[in-house]
């Protein structure tokens, strides 16, 4: 009698050939449902809401860099019609004021950028303007960082470094309540 020992029977393996198919099925499911979206954007901090009217502060005119965007997406920078492409350079010059001009900011610490738009301004233009103003600050931070530490500015920098730079050149952007002339 041919005796089949139990050990012999143990050798019978489960056929793993279909394993790959199962894994493929799952893989295809995840491939289809996946959205690898790169979530990037301009991070801003909104001012806290308060019911009371904010205190009115007297500011020197030379320390305020006013940017107005109307419903036709035109830009008025300190009373002059300006192109978006020139905004960055003008903002940089205003904040840093390398030539110590009388009509630009006394010091980067005192510089305030005031942004005001209309309810009819398109969001694309608003983001573009915001981006340029942010870029102006980023470039100034970069210069300052190179000067102080010899390395370019980045978000990965130690907190102490970033704090020191932002103390010298704080990002002050005040947004006024938008006007309502151009909304459909």
């Amino acid at each position: 009698m041919a005796r089949t020992s139990s050990r012999d029977r143990m050798k019978n393996e489960i056929n793993a050939g279909s394993m790959a198919d199962i894994a493929f099925l799952l893989l295809i499911f995840f491939l289809v449902t996946t959205t690898i979206d790169i979530d990037k954007g301009i991070t801003v901090k909104l001012p806290p809401w308060s019911e009371e009217d904010p205190e009115t502060q007297k500011l020197k005119k030379r320390n305020v860099f006013s940017v107005l965007v109307n419903a036709q997406d035109q830009l008025l920078v300190r009373g002059e019609l300006t192109d978006v492409d020139d905004l960055r350079e003008r903002a940089k010059e205003f904040i840093a004021n390398p030539q110590r001009r009388e009509d630009l900011s006394t010091d980067p610490k005192n510089a305030i950028i005031s942004l005001k738009n209309d309810r009819g301004t398109s969001y694309g233009v608003y983001v573009e303007v915001y981006n340029e103003l942010k870029a102006a600050y980023n470039e100034l931070w970069n210069d300052e960082c190179e000067r102080m530490y010899g390395i370019p500015y980045s978000e990965e920098l130690p907190v102490a470094y970033r704090k020191a730079i932002k103390e010298k050149i704080p990002f002050v952007l005040s947004e006024a309540e938008p006007t309502n002339f151009g909304e459909e």
């Binding site: 954007g41 991070t43 901090k45 909104l46 001012p47 806290p48 809401w49 301004t121 398109s122 983001v127």
Partner: peptide, 27 residues
């Protein structure tokens, strides 16, 4: 990008009232 700021401002005001101040303009 073509939306007007009116509706965005309303949303921003709602966020400020809800004390959700960290905002990212996706781009």
């Amino acid at each position: 990008g073509d939306v007007t700021m009116g509706i965005v401002t309303d949303v921003k005001t709602a966020l400020r009232k809800a004390n959700q101040l960290k905002v990212n303009y996706s781009a």
